[in-house]
Design a protein around this nucleic acid. Sequence first.
DNA 1: GTGTTTTGTGATTATATGAGTTAAAACCGA
DNA 2: TCGGTTTTAACTCATATAATCACAAAACAC
Lengths: 271, 271
Amino acid sequence: MSDISHERQSVELLQQLGLKKYEAECFVALTRLPDGGTAKEISDITDVPRTRVYDATRILEAQGLVEIQHTSPQRFRALSIDEATATLRRQYESKVDDLGESLRRLEPEERTDDGRPVHEVWSLSGTAAIESRTRQLVDDADEEVVLLVDDASASERLLDALAAAAGREVDVTVGTTSESSLDRVREAAPDADVIRSGLEWLHGSSRSDPVVLSQVLLVDRNTLLVSSRGADDGSELSATAIYGCGFDNGFVVIVRRLLTAQLRGLDGRTV
Amino acid sequence: MSDISHERQSVELLQQLGLKKYEAECFVALTRLPDGGTAKEISDITDVPRTRVYDATRILEAQGLVEIQHTSPQRFRALSIDEATATLRRQYESKVDDLGESLRRLEPEERTDDGRPVHEVWSLSGTAAIESRTRQLVDDADEEVVLLVDDASASERLLDALAAAAGREVDVTVGTTSESSLDRVREAAPDADVIRSGLEWLHGSSRSDPVVLSQVLLVDRNTLLVSSRGADDGSELSATAIYGCGFDNGFVVIVRRLLTAQLRGLDGRTV
DNA sequence: GTGTTTTGTGATTATATGAGTTAAAACCGA
DNA sequence: TCGGTTTTAACTCATATAATCACAAAACAC
């Protein structure tokens, strides 16, 4: 990656972290000037108008990212990268902490709970959210957990949850497609029933259908979670999942039946 | 604090963390509805127009903060507070990490180093930035460190730096205004010379001059850092400092002389 | 000193983004 | 099919940001 492109990326990231364009550009420029620079020098190596350098750096100074030398001409200097990132981190951390507290203090709005149907199908995005929901479903399992994963999708914490479920008399079955992950799962959750699913075609992708089904989870025969991601794209946001509950939930029923047929073909087992 | 005010604060914080107003309001509303809600229900307890609930929640879903039930009417549900804050934290962490890398890859712009004078006086803001610079100055000290602090301003890490300096033959003098902090400093840095400065008036504030000088640091007789903050205001951003280097730096010279006179009055010592 | 260049501040004008509104399409239950 | 609601999408308006300009003050050259 070229230097100019790192510059673009740095500016981009700083903007995503809440800085304005000019502020971001000034900060990046100053990072490239170890001894700092004047408004003119900054303006020369960026496309920030010289007359705007002053406001931008003032704000950066107020955020603790830049030092100002009040001479004539003024000179500006960026704090070290470590100090700057630490500052940003700290600011964000405290905001997220405050947010957590503040949200927790909210009174729940009371509702007329008019027993809504249980035919629910929810969708959610992001590997983190999906992983979290998966774990929660496994933790809430009463009788049976069936999980089919492709090789990459079994996190440590999920394996822990599976082991815990198996330990409290829940019938845990895990299907994978490769020997190596087979062993990994067996080691982490010795009480679980770990099999080769033989369902590579389920997880794989093709040119015409570039989606990878990374995991299928069936809990107590009435709750189902299917998660998928774009084939090539490893990025955080491309992962999506849908999950549903209820014995009479069409989504759950049809997938459970198809799955049962497939796995029965494999080992005669009723899923 | 009332519930409505927590709501305001939550929305405010979410906006600072990068969400739009409608997104923030929808998320807060959903947090108050444990079983989720429809567009209408959300619109009823917020001032988000019902027709805009859909785009807002779609974006929240894409960020992994909300689940969507694709029924008719659609239902929306917020992830738990812990999951949501964890997600936000993770997103921010990865951005800051990327930024650090990206900045580090920037080539420094080469400069015609025209031996600029050393009469430098820099200003900087934020307790974190100030603490960091203070520590750095102490770490770089060769011969002598004189530090006057008010009671609140001596962090552990700073005391460590002072102890380390004292340990490598640097002449360390620390002046405080109360017995309790006196003991704290003596314990942390046994090799340092710790005295009661008697300079309460230096650190204190008055109606007409509501600024607290929280610390004065003189290193090797040629580098000076003075930091101050608003009197009542304990907030992060009100803290500012200036520091300068050079034997012939007017700022350093005049403060050093005034200080010397004061302290000589105290114990005959030449600072 | 005087004239010229550089520097800093403030006001002003575009432009982009987000907030709020409206209209119309899709959908549901009768 | 009809009246109502839900949902989508396009549009207006306001605000915030980006970019430009005009001018005064300071530094510099001579």
